[in-house]
Design a protein around this nucleic acid. Structure first.
Lengths: 222, 222
DNA sequence: ACCTGAACACCGTTCAAGT
DNA sequence: ACCTGAACACCGTTCAAGT
């Protein structure tokens, strides 16, 4: 069998020596260009121009490879500058994280089951906890509120996937049209409005504002 | 090769004739008992005591099998009785859905990439849209608000997985302990509080209340 | 030390055949 | 009509060897 010609994914650093770093880099490119199914040990080794087993010298197995790819991808997340009120800071933080996840949908999906615990990931937590402290929350409630923002950002990026937004809207609309209107009056009436909420920056921003409103209401009642 | 003895997953209906229904049923049991990796065409066929290719007479392939399993699982979701204020109704609806997802973590994970569009799934939407209409939202905003609840419920069930809560807490705590305290003062100070928010009914309820507070604030400003 | 092919136990699916 | 084994193109990983 002739060796597979390296594709675009590997070309950026095709001649560098092998290292965990480079494996993670090319793995990330493969993930983003061709999806999670393409990111196999065998395929990645081909892409790097080495034998499959060579990877095991740098990476502990498939699970460890995925961790390395995630850490590598997360390192590129840029923290926005801290300015404005606590509310403006949290909003900007959430939007920044959401933007990068929308741009890297496969990474967001991979992130689902494996928490990122690199120092870099905690820069977002640090910034968020500081803003929530400024707002007046004690440590326990600031942690709860931060987790709410985290779940909202990652949940939106995962469930409202931009990549298949059109398909999702079409399927949803068709399913609503098939419902017996007598049993589903409110859903049937909202056949235009419900599919519209399945993705998009506007839907993300709406929920974020409601959460932040909720935080303010909570502070006011103390 | 001797035929694999059917395990507990298939025993409930081991002698029924083959049907899409029964394939979905045994597939669901396999999924919940042994996880997503165990739910393969070959393994499921073994479990049912038939040849692998036999499944293709009832199911269009792996993707269609997963859809069938999800629909089968979703059909069991019980809608709570509608009573109380719009806020109480939405709260009860969200809690009911969250409870069933927490009890079926693998189903929740599968649900991530494939929307459920069966009539049964829309019973929750119908109930939610009615409550939000009562509250005073127009159709467009009711749809947005409902989607917020949906993402919150599924996001919590996916990211705050109860099944590996202890591991997640331990890993998170260890990672925080490794951070340079000077650079991460707010995170380091919350080394007890942050891991505590990684799962649990209380964290789910906290965010739900903040969202509902946010809906009320939004209605008040109109 | 660093790399690797062969082999094993798995996948999903096509195809051509069995009853 | 309903079912199926063999074959193909893939997986991750162990093992025993190459340089």
């Amino acid at each position: 069998m002739p060796p597979r010609r390296p594709t675009a994914a590997a070309s950026t650093a095709a001649r560098s020596p092998l290292s965990r770093e480079r494996i993670a880099q090319v793995g990330l490119e493969l993930l983003e260009h061709e999806g999670l199914e393409a990111l196999s040990m065998r395929r990645l080794a081909d892409e790097l121009g080495v034998g499959t087993m060579t990877l095991y010298g740098y990476v502990d197995g498939k699970e460890d490879l995925l961790d390395a790819v995630i850490d590598h991808g997360a390192a590129e997340f840029g923290l926005p500058p801290a300015r404005g009120s606590w509310r403006e800071q949290l909003s900007e933080l959430a939007h920044a994280l959401h933007r990068v996840l929308v741009a890297r949908p496969h990474l967001a999906r991979l992130r689902l089951t494996r928490p990122i615990v690199t120092p870099g990931a905690f820069r977002f937590t640090e910034r968020g906890m500081q803003a929530l402290g400024e707002a007046g929350f004690d440590r326990a409630e600031a942690a709860q509120a931060f987790r709410c923002l985290f779940v909202w950002v990652f949940g939106s990026a995962s469930f409202n996937a931009e990549t298949r937004a059109e398909d999702a809207r079409r399927e949803s609309r068709a399913a609503i049209a098939r419902l017996p209107p007598g049993e589903y009056p409110a859903v049937t009436a909202a056949i235009d409005e419900l599919p519209a909420t399945l993705s998009g920056e506007e839907q993300f921003a709406y929920g974020l504002e409601r959460l932040l409103d909720g935080f303010e209401a909570r502070l006011a009642e103390r």
